[in-house]
Write a protein that binds this DNA or RNA. Sequence first.
DNA 1: CTGTGAGTTCACAGATTTGTGAAGTTAAGG
DNA 2: CCTTAACTTCACAAATCTGTGAACTCACAG
Lengths: 179, 179
Amino acid sequence: MTADTSRPGPRAEEARPEGYPEPVAAFVERFAADLTEAGMQRMAARVFACLLAADEGALSSTELAARLRVSPAAVSGAVRYLAQVHLVSREREPGSRRERYRLHDNAWYAAMLRRDTMIGRWADTMTSGIAAVGESTRAGRRMAETAEFLLFLRTELDALMERWRSRRAEPSGAPPDGA
Amino acid sequence: MTADTSRPGPRAEEARPEGYPEPVAAFVERFAADLTEAGMQRMAARVFACLLAADEGALSSTELAARLRVSPAAVSGAVRYLAQVHLVSREREPGSRRERYRLHDNAWYAAMLRRDTMIGRWADTMTSGIAAVGESTRAGRRMAETAEFLLFLRTELDALMERWRSRRAEPSGAPPDGA
DNA sequence: CTGTGAGTTCACAGATTTGTGAAGTTAAGG
DNA sequence: CCTTAACTTCACAAATCTGTGAACTCACAG
């Protein structure tokens, strides 16, 4: 039996052997490039972008491999990484061995949280640095200020995400301004 | 090559042929690792960390090479990158061929600005994506929301940095180290 | 219980990235 | 004018990262 017959509804876009329409592929590659430039592993970036562009917001490993024209192995590695940093979640379809990878609803929120963790680690590093150079040295004061900035940043990012969340919660109507 | 003899005030820490005290080296490597993990080139990260830990907040290429135990060539490349993204500035010492690389006062401010630019580019990418999938599709709506978040983020980061700046300006009389 | 398809893991090969040594460039000093 | 010192640039070698194919595991279908 061919793969399609076992699945509910093959869409027009998926009918092409290549995976999906050209313009969408172009977007995926462009956004993946953006992410890569920002430090994300290339394959992980491509998978993430591909999920964002997938209408259902979730794809199986096989589908991803077809769309991106890479081996299932490559997808596997990328997905493991993305799941680890909470940018996608894995979900099993009950009646099938298929596993679907879904974009986290608030992928960006998760990304910010991750950054949060990083910021905390950096602040710790600063503390250790102050101990190394002495807190009354110029370098020590500089590090102390940096640490202070990092903690400030973390607090602010928390608040920022909170504002976004409440803004999102509001129904369509034009929200005041910054609130 | 110690090079101390040619410079005005060699400090105790700089007396060691290796460059600087062990604990400081440990901090430099640790912080460099943090930055590397976040996507910064390794050598650039090491140079940046080294400048942060240098009491004067500025070092010459030769000094950096000695402290980090790498060739001047490696320093040259790293510094070029750091200057390009405005994390350090080059300054010439008048009476000498020496060029000193100085940590930007508000290195973090510069880093955030850079991120700002990136965010704008991402938002543009989203717009192109919406065009590719159609604005009334699920994927289109998802992208529109992402774009909205990115613009929100940019505005918020501006405001955030503004708050930090005014907070830095106001408290007590403790002047920041002139670095 | 066996076949089949989905996904994972692993060792390896191709492609990038990194850092070095050597040669080149420029300015201060004798 | 010629030497010396401080970088810089370039070609190349070493180290790292990436993606592939092949072998393996698992669960459902018959």
